[in-house]
Design a protein around this nucleic acid. Structure first.
Length: 714
DNA sequence: GCGGATCAC
DNA sequence: TATGGTGATCCGC
């Protein structure tokens, strides 16, 4: 292996990772130099399956680079000149729309998990420690970093770098609790702040600053050492020590008021507390820097943990800034264009969020390492990269980024996955798969989500990852529904590998393709199919149960049909609330147009439900749902059986669908319990009816197209 | 829509 | 002994 590959394993951006500077070791200070660290890591990693896979991935990246350079060599000067004109046109446009009016802050807690653990266990304070397990570390403290121990490193390798390393298991509940405290402070500066993770957030403090100008000084005055952290009654919360208890993650960087803390004896401080309370008061100014300093001060007072912050006109810059004076520091880019371009000039592209190891390597192959390079090569980049990529590059090189902090929209996927020691038994694999589906179903249920795409993720013992997805025409959300799809994917993979077993080290299940708000009333296929079992009176109960999670609690909601009607009248698809759309509603009409049955409204409405069969379209003289369902079922079956007999009198409508469909095609259907031809047609017909009733013409189209051939076959 | 990859935390 | 889990996005089919 060549040197470059080694660099990939022990990343080449030490300047960034080892911020403390490994050569700055003071006399007597323990630690390892860069070379030694790389050597130990290599010895520990070489020859492992993990490393082999890393090499393989690296080769692939090299090939991508190769291909890119090949492309580059074929470009003509006139092509590049032409591109230059186009790119500069856009650049000018972007420049014109540059917005420097917002004050965006990115706040980042220093070595968060490690800091929390050290705070709660003082014995760890002066020891190298990391949070995680022997398999994987999440973060490490300052002392451990001197040995090259850092986040995303397996604990057993860290132990080789630093045999005295303490590894503390993750304790998310604790971090969440601390995070909540910090977020309470964030919200005072920006009620719409955007959390990125437990220890990071973006804030737009523009409005705060404007208001802050009108505040009396009193509102910017804070007592030192009397923060919330003093609420517990441990010894460390005495005033003179409160200031010192910030874990010394980075001893070179003092916490607030360090001189008072270190230089005063206890007696002195106590006396001064009484006599010179003025001295224990801090007043912050009205500028952005002062506001952020105040925020960080309050965080430290409340949690005894330190944070770093970046202040800039947009999110991208703020994020880069927060790293500049880490730990326990802040950095501001003033709000004028020159300051931005000065800052960007020598900025290594790798520091920009979104540019990772691979992109860095690709750009480096083009001689690009700084943002200036990035700008100078903008024409070339527009020819070698996709539109989204080079647009992004151009934004970066101009120092542009989002100026509005937008909260994330709806989630797009939900997943769960697990790593384990080698598992080769198919039986175990199915069992695990089911467990994952169960866990996922629980999570889905918490958020009331249902999706149409199930993705199975497999990683074999060679660390090769494979994903296989299956999108169904209905929604799934329960353990059984998800598993019925996932297990068929798994089966296909097992069959494919057979007679060799799948030798797995990880399995995961993901759901995506969630229903948008105005699709949520759709029924899952099981509750849908349950209608055809209408002889069982449990039908409506089952449907209710399976859709519990999507039921809107809105007391005054309109019935779905009323909303639809209103929407049609307005000529647009108004987003309906996720009002419960029971399958049985297919044939129901409510005479009262304004009120849902569950509405706690005081007015008593006389609501009369009319049952109209969606098949024969005849009003049924009953108010009993079970009776009505039975009628619909008979009606449906009658029609289907007649049709079947008509088209092919010799065909047994109850014969297995396996005889008609190819194996792969009936997988999903058999998984749902549709084994027979008549059941299949029943389901299709019923769904079509439902879709038609709901005016979902797009669905009807794709559905009928998909099944047309099957119908013809029948 | 699928599958592999990249990225961030 | 041992290299994570979750979510988003992009690219090229």
């Amino acid at each position: 292996m060549d040197h470059q590959e080694e660099q990939e394993i022990a990343p080449s951006n030490e300047g960034f990772q080892f911020r403390m500077g490994l050569n700055d070791n003071k006399a007597g200070m323990e630690g390892l130099d860069k070379e030694k660290i790389n050597k130990i890591i290599m010895e520990a990693t070489k020859g492992s399956k993990f490393y082999d896979n890393e090499l393989k991935k690296d080769q692939q990246v090299n090939q991508r680079i190769e291909k890119m350079l090949q492309q580059k060599s074929q470009l003509t000067i006139s092509q590049i000149k032409k591109a230059q004109v186009q790119v500069d046109k856009l650049a000018l446009e972007l420049e014109r729309s540059r917005d420097l009016s917002r004050v965006i802050v990115h706040v980042d807690m220093d070595a968060f998990y490690a800091a929390v653990e050290m705070r709660d266990n003082p014995e760890l304070k002066d020891k190298p420690m990391a949070v995680g397990s022997m398999s994987m570390l999440s973060t490490s403290n300052y002392l451990a970093r001197r040995f090259g121990v850092r986040a995303a490193m397996p604990g057993f390798i860290a132990k080789r770098l630093c045999p005295n390393l303490y590894i503390v298991p993750l304790n998310f509940d604790k971090y969440r609790a601390v995070s909540k405290e910090v977020r309470e402070i964030f919200s005072e500066y920006d009620p719409n702040f955007l959390p990125l993770s437990l220890d990071e957030a973006y804030l737009d403090i523009t409005d705060h600053l404007e208001e802050r100008l009108t505040w009396p000084e009193e509102r910017r005055r804070f007592l030192v050492g009397t923060g919330n952290s003093g609420n517990n009654s441990t010894a460390k919360c005495e005033p003179e020590e409160t200031q010192c208890t910030s874990p010394e993650l980075f001893e070179d960087f003092p916490t607030f008021l360090p001189d008072q803390c270190h230089d005063r004896s206890r007696q002195d401080t106590e006396r001064e507390n009484k006599e010179r309370t003025q001295e224990n008061v801090l007043v912050f100014g009205t500028s952005a820097e002062e506001a952020v300093r105040e925020m960080r001060f309050r965080i430290e007072q409340k949690t005894t943990l330190t944070a770093s912050a970046g202040i800039a006109p947009n999110m991208m810059l703020a994020k880069v800034c927060s790293d500049k004076n880490k730990p326990n520091g802040q950095y501001i880019i003033p709000h004028d264009r020159q300051a931005v371009t000065d800052f960007i000039k020598d900025l290594p592209i790798r520091k920009v969020p979104g540019i990772g190891k691979v992109t860095e390597k690709m750009l480096r192959a083009l001689g690009i390492t700084t943002c200036t390079d990035l700008y100078q090569q903008r024409a070339l980049l527009s020819l070698l990269f996709s539109d989204t990529s080079w647009h992004n590059f151009l934004h970066i090189s101009l120092g542009l980024g989002s100026t509005r902090i937008e909260r994330d929209g709806e989630r797009k996927s939900m997943s769960t996955e697990r790593t384990f020691s080698e598992m080769s038994s198919a039986e175990e694999q199915y069992e695990l798969c089911q467990q994952l589906c169960k866990d996922l179903a629980e999570d889905l249920n918490k958020e009331g989500l249902k999706g149409r795409t199930v993705t199975l993720k497999l990683k074999n013992i060679k660390f090769e990852v494979k994903t296989r997805a299956s999108t169904v025409s209905y929604v799934v959300s329960t353990e059984d529904e998800i598993f019925s799809v996932a297990k068929e994917i798994l089966k296909a993979e097992i069959d494919l590998a057979s007679p060799e077993p799948l030798r797995l080290r990880l399995m995961g299940v993901r759901i995506s393709g969630f229903l948008s708000e105005n699709e949520k009333h759709q029924k899952s296929i099981t509750s849908f199919l349950s209608l055809s079992k209408a002889t069982k009176t449990k039908c409506s109960e089952m449907a209710d149960k399976s859709d519990q999670a999507t039921q809107a609690p809105a007391p005054q909601r309109e019935s779905f049909f009323n909303q639809k009607r209103a929407a049609r009248q307005q000529g647009l698809e108004q987003g309906s609330t996720s009002s419960e759309q029971n399958v049985n509603d297919v044939g129901l009409k409510t005479t009262d147009e304004s009120k849902a049955p569950s509405a706690p409204s005081s007015s008593v409405c006389h609501e009369e439900t009319i049952f109209i069969c969606p098949v024969c379209n005849i009003r049924q003289d009953t108010s009993n749902l079970a009776v009505f369902n039975r009628h619909v079922d008979v009606c449906l079956n009658k029609g289907i059986l007649e049709e079947l007999q008509e088209h092919n009198p010799n065909q047994d409508p109850r014969r297995p669908i396996k005889t008609d469909l190819r194996n792969g095609e009936c997988i999903k259907l058999t998984a749902l319990g549709v084994f027979q031809l008549n059941r299949l047609l029943n389901a299709i017909k019923h769904l079509l009816l439902l879709l038609r009733t709901l005016h979902f013409s797009t669905y009807i189209h794709s559905f009928t197209t998909h099944f047309q051939r099957k119908l013809e076959d029948c």
